[in-house]
Amino acid sequence: MLRTRRSLRHRATPALLLAPGLLLFLVVIVFSALRTFWISLHAWDGFGPMTWVGLSNYAELWGDPQFWVSLRNNVIWLAVFLLAPPMGLAIALLVNQKIRTMRLAKSLFFMPLVLSTVTVGVIFVWFYDPSYGLLALLFHAFGASPPAVLSSDTWVTFAVVFAALWPQVAFCMILFLAGLNTLDEEIIGAGRVDNARGWQMLRHIVLPQLRQVAFIALAISMIGALRSFDIIAVMTSGGPFGSSTNLAYQMYQESLFSYRFGYGAALATVLFAIMMVFIVWYLLRLLRDERSA
């Protein structure tokens, strides 16, 4: 009797400890995701009655030119954000040198991470300003007329991603710096004994030990690229005429400005499906590493 109770308690403890988190996860994430999918099958203005329309929101997405622009922009975000981990690594290697002023350099590189995205966006809007911005001054210095990058439907997305890349690189740098601090001194020592130096040391001794960190940096950059929203809102509001809108921003506009919550939910579902690919990949890697460890 006593034993069964004890074993019950033994088994119940982890379940009880997991329960609050699990409950929150079910309500906030799983329920919301399912509900979003349910809404995407309806036409709904946000507070009137919901009308069942089946998959027609998705069919409309297919024929909506803005959807393809948003999708293209998400691909640009993903591609440019691929640069964040290698750039972060390069800077981490640079500031990891034992030189006196490096501490200052390190904190300068770290700075964008403390700034809120809104601040970063505002700073870059000033930077790009075609009449008074730093970029304009640079162009004037060379006698050229500055481009209005935020007004150009070709360049605007790149201009916004570039601004967002700044804190992202800093974030990757921090990850790699932490990774560099946990390097196994013995392996490095062994490498030194075998006369490994410079590039060889980096390629064969340091990088293999940073694989785990690199993987996390890459996965987080990808997911960050997909959920980017705030900096677009601050810098361009998705404009000019929707050229810098991505799926997340289009979802916000359709739902809250055009009052088309069903259509917005369909966009959210598509975005979720794309993100799922990266999340599943990330989780599978994580599980595999945990099992092999």
Binding site: P240, F241, G242, F257, S258, Y259
Partner: peptide
Amino acid sequence: DPDVAQAGLKGFQEFMV
């Protein structure tokens, strides 16, 4: 209608460019 308004605002911004 707000939906039309949103489409129109964006459309006329594009038209001027």
